[in-house]
């Protein structure tokens, strides 16, 4: 934590941490405490006066069916994004790990969606699936599927999940490939000599050995789906049709900036804050244990 040898005491360290501390206090701690405070208030319709109501905003959310539906929707949306993009990345990494020469070329060709901004990813997918012009609806029509994500909530959700998973494949692929390449080759060879084929080796050796990576990626992907998909949803569906693709972060934005419900939005922010804190704790707990791996 601290060096055995260090510089003599002076005001210098305070000056050095000052920029970071000031920004943290002004733009992080103060707004977060404001959110906490506002979550206990109810404002009147004109924003002129406010009343301290303890946990009424939270009780309201707890009884609000729309909020609860959003909560569960966010949960299974995250699971779907994480599951889809991790399994796709796992298969690709499993095969890329077998390539002797050219593995790096495949890596180069697979990693760049990471650099695409979420809202751009949304724009690309909404263009491909544009009901009147898009390429996929054109082909889907031959299969008898009528694609219109502006009207059909299931298709809207599917499109958002696809776009979000597509963007995250690169990240998962990198970590899976790195994890697989760090498995000692001797272990794999020993299993091959004992007669285990490629699929058996993957199922009984490689996959169990990279399970810490799987767990780590599960947390990272959940955080990604919770917070970084705002742009994707904003570009593709704006939370619609009829709120069917609204996730928690989108609802905070919508209720706060569009609906101007300060207390309700602040209470939602506080709930999100607790979710982030628990995810961070899980993530750091994992890092501690990972040392022995």
């Amino acid at each position: 934590m601290l060096k055995r040898v260090h510089f003599p005491p002076s005001v210098l360290p305070y000056l050095l941490v000052a920029p970071q501390v000031i920004i943290t206090l002004v733009f992080f701690i103060w707004p977060a405490s404001q959110a906490l405070y506002q979550s206990f208030l109810i404002e009147d319709a004109f924003g002129l006066s406010s009343e301290f109501v303890w946990f009424e905003n939270f009780v309201y959310l707890w009884n609000d069916e729309i909020y609860l539906a959003t909560f569960w929707r966010t949960g299974w949306f995250s699971l779907a994004v994480a599951g889809l993009s991790m399994s796709f990345a796992l298969v690709l990494a499993g095969f890329a790990d077998r390539v002797v020469r050219g593995a790096m070329i495949y890596r180069t060709l697979l990693i760049w969606p990471y650099a695409v901004a979420p809202v751009l990813a949304g724009a690309l997918w909404v263009f491909m699936f544009n009901p009147t012009l898009g390429i996929f609806p054109y082909f889907l029509e031959f299969a008898g599927i009528d694609w219109n994500h502006y009207l059909k909530s299931g298709q809207a959700m599917l499109l958002v999940i696809l776009a979000a998973a597509w963007k995250q494949v690169a990240y998962n692929f990198l970590f899976y490939l790195a994890a697989m390449q760090s498995i000692p080759k001797t272990v794999i060879e020993a299993a091959a000599i004992d007669g285990a084929g490629p699929i058996k080796r993957f199922a009984t050796i490689i996959f169990p050995l990279i399970s810490p990576t799987t767990f780590f990626l599960l947390v990272i992907n959940a955080v990604y789906a919770f917070f970084d998909t705002f742009g994707i949803i904003h570009a593709i569906t704006q939370g619609g049709p009829a709120g069917s693709t609204t996730i928690l972060v989108y609802k905070v934005f919508n209720d706060g900036f569009v609906g101007l419900d300060l207390g309700g939005s602040a209470a939602q922010s506080v709930i999100l804050m607790f979710l982030v804190i628990s995810m961070t704790v899980v993530q750091f707990g994992y890092v501690e244990r990972k040392v022995e791996y």
């Binding site: 601290l2 260090h6 707004p31 602040a266 804050m273």
Partner: peptide, 30 residues
Amino acid sequence: IVYFKFPFRMGIFWLIFITLMLPVEVRILP
């Protein structure tokens, strides 16, 4: 934090750590 020993060192360290748990999305309005 690494090269100086000064009062509130750990306090400042934890203050910085907390920012990890406060992404823009959870404190947009304030």
